[in-house]
Write a protein that binds this DNA or RNA. Sequence first.
DNA 1: CTGAAAGCGCTTACAG
DNA 2: CTGAAAGCGCTTACAG
Lengths: 361, 361
Amino acid sequence: MPRKKTEHPAPALAKAAAPVRQAPDKAKTINDIARLAEVSKKTVSRVINHSPLVHQETRERVEAVMRQFNYTPDPFARGLAFRRSFLIGMVYDNPTAQYIVNMQYGALDAIRDSGFELVVHPCDSRNPGYIDGVHRFVQQQKLHGVMLVPRVSEDQALADMLADIGCRYSRIASVSLDEASRMVITHDRDGAAEAADYLQSLGHRDIALITGPSSYRSAHERTAGFVEALSKRGIELPAARIVEAGYTFESGVAAAERLLSGNQRPSAIFAGNDEMAAGVYKVALRAGISIPQQLSVVGFDDSPLASRLWPALSSVRLPVRDMGRIAASMLLQSEPGAASVASASVRPHLVVRDSCQPPAY
Amino acid sequence: MPRKKTEHPAPALAKAAAPVRQAPDKAKTINDIARLAEVSKKTVSRVINHSPLVHQETRERVEAVMRQFNYTPDPFARGLAFRRSFLIGMVYDNPTAQYIVNMQYGALDAIRDSGFELVVHPCDSRNPGYIDGVHRFVQQQKLHGVMLVPRVSEDQALADMLADIGCRYSRIASVSLDEASRMVITHDRDGAAEAADYLQSLGHRDIALITGPSSYRSAHERTAGFVEALSKRGIELPAARIVEAGYTFESGVAAAERLLSGNQRPSAIFAGNDEMAAGVYKVALRAGISIPQQLSVVGFDDSPLASRLWPALSSVRLPVRDMGRIAASMLLQSEPGAASVASASVRPHLVVRDSCQPPAY
DNA sequence: CTGAAAGCGCTTACAG
DNA sequence: CTGAAAGCGCTTACAG
């Protein structure tokens, strides 16, 4: 009922329309809380920031009021005063989608209910200006910290830049590249060794390896772990059984073609990631080589692909979500200077499916 | 060299250590720019916000100074004063990883160099509290706007909540669900029709369909588009040839088992997404039914999986990155109230690979 | 077209 | 343990 039509509005009705003259649900500010809790805004600020310099009773009174009005401090006001934000950046360079998404879920696990949010920043490390791009991103948004995902996490120049401008960061990598408080180490080497042990234990002796690009630390580690573990068990890989590829499906196809074309085929292939393992599947299927009867295959990453191939691919799994969670929580815990004691570490493990069996000699 | 140890520090040296008494590279503020350009800070503010109320000469002088000192306004100060941020939220509910990542790339394409950043917010729409979660997210961060990705984009209650609190949003969906200025329409129906026409043109007559869950709008559209297109060409799908599954690999396997177990097999199967199509591959491979010789298969999504299966899967592609770019740019362009004229629209198309051929009757 | 004042909601630095 | 003042870097509302 439009107001204008009521020629003589009853005062009572008018009052009901705007009861108690209280802004409907305007967000409370620190001043409101201070007034309602009968303290100064500075004391409320201390409670917000968990300062020990507040009397227990005072703290409880303030917290009760905050809870009652569902108060949360304005991140922009805090950001302005603190000169830094409550934003965590995730910087990455085009690994596979599932990896990125799992990593994001992990980071979000860590910051849930902390008042922090996740800002994503994919970049292209082949572009020489990409470090400047990250620099601008960090400065502009006054990021609380950034997580560096492989492969950008391996770029020392990036880490140096962040250290220079005093931005906290955490790096996820297959080996330690920095002080412990900044590293989440994934030990890819151990995962590759487990794959090697598995194939050897099945009875394979003529084994081939498709590696990722040697410029990738993870590829180097996976290769070294695999070769060393076999060597420990008395199997030396001849150079012809090691083919370097590019971590892509197509490069895996090309590598598998080389490996499977001769008349002396290996009985098993370990691929440095699942994409390349899928390439092996394609070549084998096309050539009528049946997996696992005539060829065993192991991948790395345990991507969604692994369980969708047929036969399902055995693959080394990295706990990506955990890695993301740990990398993000390192940023929340540590003060910029303070070094935490323990270095974070995570272990890969082999997920056995249907792509391997003893060789048919 | 610690200062205390130098008993008589040479004044000249001390001066060299802090040359010209100018803060090394402290970020300039609006006040610095105002002083250097010899205008008031308000005028600088006008230039920043592209106000027309600035003399051309003045504007150029201010812009020159801003450029010279590489000045960008502090997003927190602006956020505080404006009461809203320069953050775009992306809200989504667990579709596949590649979809999410492509969507993120698209959104980032749109906001590049705009001063906006992308904040991700995955959520679980089966959780009844998820709308409150989005509410808090939006209010807390004072988001400039949010993009709603399927399937949360289909939830009218979510859209209503956002409209209620005056938050701008854009919705990506297979059909129009809202005013044109807020929709990116993907026309899944047309893509499914193209798949139907393709199979029919190859000569298939006994065709089966594995649909996604009927509660998904996209599944409904894909099914309708496929069935109608076949009907137009004189092929009616009997009920037994339509199996509802859950958009997952496993559900695709189960559906394919039903479809391929009888002795009267269809000669072609259209799956509502690639995950389920991969399930068809698994069943066919296991049963010794060769693709495409004995069975043609078409998927939907053109996920990475499609080209990694063997034979490579023909699949309907949605321009996901474009969808993300358009959805994000809609948020940047429009003022909260202003309705843009055209509705955004995007078309799927069939990517033909090696999974289909004429039936072997 | 331009500017001086007040304010956004917090914090730091200083007192007590 | 608590508080009054000043300030973070912008904008709005008001003048001119």
